[in-house]
Computed example of a mutant assay.
Amino acid sequence: MFAVRYGPPAYAFGLERTAITHPRKFTSLVVCGARGPRPRYPRVWKTRKRIGTISKSKKLVECVKDLSNVKEEVYGALDSFVAWELEFPLIAVKKALKLLEDEKEWKRIIQVIKWMFNKGQGKTIGSHYTLLNALIEDGRVEEAEELYEKIFSRYLEGLPRTFFMRMISLYYRLEAYQKMFEIFADMEELGVKPDGSIIRMLGEVFHKLGMFDKYVQLKRKYPPPKWEYRYIKGKRIRIKVYPENKTHGPIRRNPGTDEVEEEEESMNLDSELEEEASAGLDRNVLDEAACGDLEFRQSGY
């Protein structure tokens, strides 16, 4: 038996064919340039605009910036700022402290950090250093000294070098050389290596006081570095340091010829370093310098 089956009719007129269109599944379409149409689902709920830590920190700065220096008023504004927070906004507060530090609002930094410490939050080394720096910049030297002694007695060997550097630079500016020698002696005892700025300040103090033998010992124990590390585009790069041709002794300028002349009292330190052999600075040398062997005396320190 033969069975004849008929297929679906195909109508062709030349090269044209009939296109059967299907109903679209989504009503709203967004046409993308690379990947074609992409469906957009309608939102069932409305989402609020989320507030990040940057905007929170800016609002915190605006909240406390125009207030008076009354402690109760500042603390009340800060308490109302974090009243509806489920957790203490530590990151926002740290960013706000950075913004205040850029604007040099030292009193506000002191108030915010003390308020944060009273809440039991953020008691880190970085926060203590920010508070120490703000106290020094605000001229509250006694409170800065109390804070430094408290941190130093707590951490001792774990205390970063930046704390020593900040206190030495403070005493160098105030010309309190006795306290400056004491802090450097603590660094020597704890094995903290000083950087170039500390060596430079101590060398200038030794020159000013006429303690050339201690200056020679200092330069012998801590020679200028041959290499230094710099951060360029986030990468740590080692760069060779070229020595600067500077005179170490006291200098004077001749007004007639406008030339720099060295005084006869200045010593040739390079020849002394080759001739004299010293064992370097130790605790006894610094104690002698700090106790009473200095000819220079500062009243009030």
Rank of each mutant, 00 (worst) to 15 (best):
F2Q: 11
P8H: 15
P8R: 15
P8Q: 15
Y11S: 15
G14Y: 07
R17T: 09
R17I: 12
K25W: 01
V31S: 08
R35E: 11
R43W: 01
W45K: 10
W45F: 13
K49E: 09
I51V: 14
G52Q: 00
T53K: 07
V64L: 11
L67C: 03
N69P: 01
V70C: 14
V74C: 12
A77R: 15
V82T: 07
E85L: 01
L90V: 08
L90N: 14
V93K: 02
K94A: 07
W106I: 00
R108K: 14
Q111L: 14
I113C: 07
K114N: 13
W115N: 00
T124W: 02
S127T: 12
L132Y: 06
A134V: 01
E143I: 04
E146S: 07
I151M: 10
P160C: 02
R161T: 11
T162V: 13
F164P: 03
M165K: 14
L174I: 13
Q178R: 14
V192T: 07
G196K: 06
I199E: 04
M201S: 01
M211W: 11
K214F: 10
K221F: 02
P223N: 07
Y231L: 14
I232C: 03
G234I: 10
K235H: 13
K235L: 10
R238M: 07
K240Q: 13
T247H: 06
H248E: 12
T257C: 05
E274I: 04
E274D: 11
E275A: 09
S278Q: 05
R283K: 11
R283W: 04
A289V: 10
